[in-house]
Computed example of a mutant assay.
Amino acid sequence: MRFSLSRSLPGISAHDEGRAEITRTLPEEVPVAVVYDGTTHAVMMASPGDIADFAYGFALTEGVIDSLDQIEGFEEQCHEAGIEARFWLREDRQEALAARRRFMAGPVGCGLCGIDSLEQANRALPHVGDMSLRLAHREVARATDDLRAAQPLHAKTGATHAAGFLVPGQGIIAVREDIGRHNALDKLIGAMARQGISAADGAFVLTSRLSLELVQKCAMAGCPVLIAVSAPTAHALRLAEGAGITVVAFAREGGFDIYSHPERITSEVTDVA
């Protein structure tokens, strides 16, 4: 069986003028179990699309794998209760898997549910120190508008997040959507890895606030710039500063704030095809 991304359901719209029967298109969410060598590692609520991208991205950002050649097999199994993303890993990844194991069943709003220790919440991150990437002011200012134009599920439901990849001079070349902001970024990272697109060559653009989990995923993927429509947390900024990541927030209506490593954002105009 396959799950639909959305469903039209009846409701009642209530206003000062009265009530009226309506039909709304609403996003679906299903449990997605990520399984490694027969053992469930995590269960996340997610939109039931691009599951392989999500699973690959999750494996990379959680440190279960460092590269795709450490995966010996993958399959997606749909059940009445949800979806299983099943991996078979190289034998040498078992120790890393045990170190990062988490058992989660819960809300998409929390990216740290069920981790084993406080130390894992503040784990050391790779340093994204390459300062060669440059993004022009104009393409950063329009990034979230361009991302919104590439969100068909949000256009239908008004209730999903998205993550996009912005390449200087090319615009946003890849987008993934999900009910959860963490899931959307994992889907994007997985899709890029499977297509051989280097995260070092551009910026992640997000339709959400920036919390530490998103900075962690950005660092694990090796992306030097995060652009978000909303605010960062103070802890996320401390983490980004230490990891060498440029954080751009409140990117909307033609303006934005830069909070760390501003040298990657220039005032020069780069034409975007």
Rank of each mutant, 00 (worst) to 15 (best):
S260R: 12
A162V: 01
A221V: 00
I71P: 01
D50P: 00
A105K: 14
G202D: 09
L153G: 03
H161M: 11
V225C: 12
G129M: 09
G158D: 00
L68E: 09
A199T: 02
A249N: 10
D53L: 04
S47T: 13
P107I: 15
A191P: 00
Q77F: 01
L135P: 13
A105W: 15
V225R: 10
G82W: 14
T246G: 15
A14W: 08
T160Q: 03
G73A: 12
A124C: 09
L239G: 00
D16G: 09
V272F: 14
A81G: 04
L185D: 06
E17A: 13
F103Q: 10
K187Y: 03
V35L: 01
A136N: 00
E95R: 02
P48Q: 04
D271A: 07
G164Q: 00
A105G: 15
A221W: 00
E21L: 09
D116N: 01
T270F: 15
T61K: 12
A55R: 02
H261I: 00
L214M: 11
S267T: 12
D53Q: 05
Y36N: 06
A14M: 14
R90S: 03
G111M: 01
V30T: 03
R238T: 07
L125K: 07
A150Q: 12
R86Y: 00
V108Q: 15
G222R: 09
A174V: 05
V247N: 09
M1W: 00
D271H: 12
L112A: 12
N183F: 12
S230K: 09
E21C: 10
E253G: 11
A228F: 10
R142N: 13
R24C: 14
R90I: 01
L97H: 03
Q151M: 07
L239K: 08
V140P: 08
S13N: 10
A231C: 06
V167G: 01
A136P: 03
L135T: 13
V64Y: 12
